[in-house]
Write a protein that binds this DNA or RNA. Structure first.
Length: 331
DNA sequence: AACATTTGACCTGG
DNA sequence: CCAGGTCAAATGTT
């Protein structure tokens, strides 16, 4: 049984970072390039599909490179600054989890599947509502565990499409000790699943906040959400956004993110007992292997914020991805 | 019937 | 040996 499960994702897929060092300038250059490409893409939207595809793939590879640079930089920083594990209950997951070298080859042997994948941590507030945040993915709970030093058990979830598509994404959800309405969500691995059919259906039937098109997603991303992103050292960082252009959207401008199955009320990273259908919001943690560079980032997501600006154009999208913000990481 | 959750047992790394 | 992570049978839900 366990042996039949494919653990092969696109983990560690070809982000070639050029060593650590100060890469801020390089990243800015790369991102500026991306920005320009996106502008071109916008111009050609509705025009030649081939050209759009070409631009998309260029954006994709540039993004990969940039993330590689950011990743290597962040990891360096994280390694250098050792974290005191004193922080009651919360300190453990990221710092104490002995994630193996993320820069190394992803697989050594099938036995060593544990902890091979990178992880990202988010703090999710459910302020008032029952559910923290909808993340647009289908999760299936496969375990729960009392964690030493923590008041609340940790839930273990994996992508619903794990078996059907071999999607390696998993997440762990745990209430924080300080505030029961706040959850720590740790994601392992990115989604490799694509749920085209369901996504298309969802586009027609699902409520706007669940529509798998980029704009809808970005709207929902903002809908009632503030995303404060910071590194472990407390540096400001770019908001996590789904920019992957790896999967060409369904014609007419779908979401570039894979695995956008219509979310179910059970998607919630909380005990199903407390989950119901009136989720407060949606957000996109990270969708692709390319976005795994945020290993050192901790995102703080609050579900109680006022309605956000709509993202109606790629320009709006670009506004959300402020290159300067990213650049400031390296200042 | 199919799918999801619960939960105790098992496995693994430190 | 212990804590964390995963498995899988039992159970619940739709």
């Amino acid at each position: 049984m366990a042996s039949t499960e494919m653990e092969m994702g696109v983990v560690g897929g070809g982000v070639n970072s050029s060593g650590g060092g100060s890469c801020g300038g390089l990243v800015v250059t790369e991102l500026s390039h991306i920005k320009e490409l996106v502008r071109q893409l916008e111009v050609h939207l509705g025009g030649s599909p081939d050209l759009c595809k070409h631009l998309a793939s260029q954006i994709f590879s540039l993004t990969e490179r940039s993330i590689g640079l950011i990743t290597s930089s962040n990891l360096d920083g994280a390694r250098r600054q050792k974290r005191p594990a004193g922080d009651a209950g919360l300190a453990s997951p990221l710092s104490a989890t002995p994630t193996s070298d993320v820069t190394d080859g992803p697989f050594q042997s099938t036995k060593k599947k544990r902890k091979v994948m990178e992880q990202r941590r988010q703090r999710v507030s459910s302020a008032g509502g029952e559910n923290p945040v909808e993340d647009g993915h289908s999760w299936r709970k496969y375990g729960q565990k009392e964690i030493l030093g923590a008041k609340h058990p940790r839930g273990y979830y994996r992508c619903t499409h794990r078996h059907s598509q071999g999607c390696p994404a998993t997440k762990q959800v745990q209430r924080t000790d300080e505030d029961p309405t706040v959850y720590d969500v740790i994601y392992h691995g990115g989604h490799t699943c694509v749920h085209r059919a369901a996504a298309g259906q969802a586009q027609a039937t699902a409520p706007p906040e669940h529509r798998p098109d980029a704009h809808g997603h970005l709207r929902s991303l903002g809908a009632g959400l503030t995303v404060k992103t910071e590194t472990e050292e407390g540096l400001p960082a770019a908001a996590p956004l789904c920019l992957s252009a790896s999967t060409p959207p369904v014609s007419g401008g779908g979401c570039p993110c894979p695995c956008l199955a219509p979310s179910t009320p059970e998607n919630w990273g909380v005990s199903p007992a407390s989950s119901n259908s009136n989720h407060a919001a949606s957000y996109l943690p990270f969708e692709d292997a390319e976005w795994r560079g945020h290993a050192g980032l901790q995102e703080v997501v609050s579900a109680s914020a006022p309605p956000p600006p709509a993202v109606d154009s790629l320009d709006d999208l670009l506004l959300l991805v402020d290159i300067d913000d990213i650049a400031s990481l390296f200042d």
